[in-house]
Simulated assay, not measured.
Amino acid sequence: MATITVNASRETGLFGRMGAAVSDFFAAVAEGRAMALRYDRLSHLTNSELARMGISREEIPQVVARGH
């Protein structure tokens, strides 16, 4: 994953705020993609594989949202 950093002293100016907003947007997109991948990976497991991990199929969305 790529990370965009913005110098804190520039965040008070227009371009600094815009840079921070763009950075936040891409961070949110990356987090959403990671969550989708976790959900996809877990949803393709069998019920017994999920049980060995201590979760049920119904719990997959909550597990993904918590980031575990």
Rank of each mutant, 00 (worst) to 15 (best):
M1H: 07
M1V: 01
M1T: 10
T3D: 14
T3H: 13
T3A: 14
T3R: 14
I4N: 07
T5D: 13
T5P: 15
T5Q: 15
A8F: 03
A8G: 11
A8H: 07
S9W: 00
S9N: 12
S9K: 05
S9F: 13
S9H: 03
S9E: 03
R10H: 13
R10Q: 14
R10V: 13
E11F: 00
E11W: 13
E11L: 05
E11K: 13
T12K: 13
G13M: 10
G13I: 10
G13F: 06
G13H: 06
G13K: 04
L14S: 01
L14T: 07
L14M: 11
L14H: 08
L14E: 14
F15C: 09
F15S: 08
R17T: 04
R17M: 07
M18F: 14
M18D: 12
M18A: 12
M18C: 12
M18H: 06
M18V: 09
G19I: 01
G19M: 09
A20H: 15
A20F: 04
A20P: 01
A21N: 01
V22I: 11
D24A: 10
D24G: 02
D24V: 03
F25L: 15
F25R: 06
F25H: 05
F26T: 06
F26G: 07
F26A: 07
F26Y: 04
A28P: 04
A28N: 11
A28F: 09
A28S: 13
V29C: 09
V29M: 10
A30D: 15
E31M: 09
G32H: 05
G32N: 07
G32I: 05
R33V: 14
R33T: 14
R33M: 14
A34T: 09
A34D: 15
A34Y: 04
M35C: 13
A36R: 01
A36S: 13
L37I: 11
R38L: 05
R38K: 02
R38W: 02
Y39E: 12
Y39H: 15
R41A: 14
L42I: 01
L42R: 01
H44M: 07
H44Q: 11
H44K: 12
H44R: 12
L45M: 03
L45N: 02
L45T: 01
N47Y: 09
N47I: 07
S48Q: 11
S48M: 06
S48D: 14
E49L: 08
L50Q: 02
A51T: 05
A51M: 11
R52P: 15
R52A: 12
R52L: 10
R52M: 12
R52D: 15
R52W: 11
M53P: 15
M53G: 08
M53S: 10
M53C: 09
M53A: 08
M53K: 08
G54T: 04
I55Y: 05
I55Q: 01
I55E: 08
I55C: 04
I55P: 06
I55W: 04
I55K: 08
S56W: 10
S56H: 04
S56C: 09
R57L: 03
R57V: 03
E58G: 13
E58I: 05
E58N: 05
E59I: 02
I60Q: 00
I60P: 00
I60G: 01
I60D: 00
P61R: 00
V63T: 07
V63C: 03
V64K: 03
V64L: 08
V64S: 06
A65R: 00
A65H: 08
R66L: 15
R66T: 03
G67Q: 04
G67A: 06
H68V: 07
H68F: 08
H68K: 03
H68N: 09
H68C: 10
